[in-house]
Nucleic acid binder design. Structure first.
Lengths: 117, 117
DNA sequence: ATAATATATCAGTATATCCTTATATAAGGA
DNA sequence: TCCTTATATAAGGATATACTGATATATTAT
């Protein structure tokens, strides 16, 4: 699942998350996305490339502008993977906790008392 | 939000996602986690450190073993951030689409016809 | 004590990432 | 046509990552 690699790596950068957050408000051109940051235009363009490759945004051509917007599918894919963990944590975890709660008191004496020095 | 950086970066590696998937089935020790991979034990230990720092797993001490398990909170945090995008994409996007559908036909003539050469 | 097992840490290396400046390309307007 | 604006790409440097093999540490068994 190399696509998830790309997607999660894309989300690992605060600038890129901020860009996505901005795009959540609606389309924006590259220069509009540059403004709020103390970064150069090439830097933002490179971030946008990363986001596009990750399937998290799409771009239209409008004259010399390239308005960007969020891509449904990309977010959905990530979401899908996370839902696996989410389910486990929501449903099974409590039961697992009980199991462990049972195990812990019975835990083999760990001899911490006679540690050297 | 430096924590989200760490969390998403942790998820960007397929080995680490596989480890999490394994832990979704229940606790496992380091050596148990090493087995399924063609990686050395130090490699897995390093991945576990990354996952722990990201708040995605926790570890108990049990004799010489360090059983690992998923950490609810970490997943929740990521989930929380993603829900922002999810909401936008689920609720507002269609409306945005309509707006853009309106704009597009009115889009300024882009003169693609007279491109050089 | 000594050895064995489970795990962590260190040193080194290859590759990737994030930024910058400089430059290329493409469209729109004078 | 020439100039400007919007964006992309290239080159280079600093830092981070993902491994490996070697070694350190802690716990348990003998």
């Amino acid at each position: 699942m190399e696509n998830l690699d790309t997607a999660f790596r894309a989300l690992a950068d605060p600038t890129r998350r901020a860009i996505l957050a901005r795009l959540a408000l609606g389309e924006a051109t590259v220069m509009e996305l540059v403004k709020p940051f103390e970064l150069t235009q090439p830097a933002i363009s490179q971030h946008l490339k990363v986001l596009e490759n990750a399937g998290l945004i799409t771009r239209r051509v409008e004259g010399t502008k390239r308005p960007c917007r969020l891509a449904k599918e990309g977010v959905a894919e990530i979401d899908h993977w996370l839902s696996m963990l989410r389910k486990v944590l929501a449903k099974n975890y409590d039961r697992l906790d009980e199991i462990l709660a049972d195990v812990k008191p019975a835990e083999k004496e760990t001899k911490k008392g006679r540690r050297k020095k």
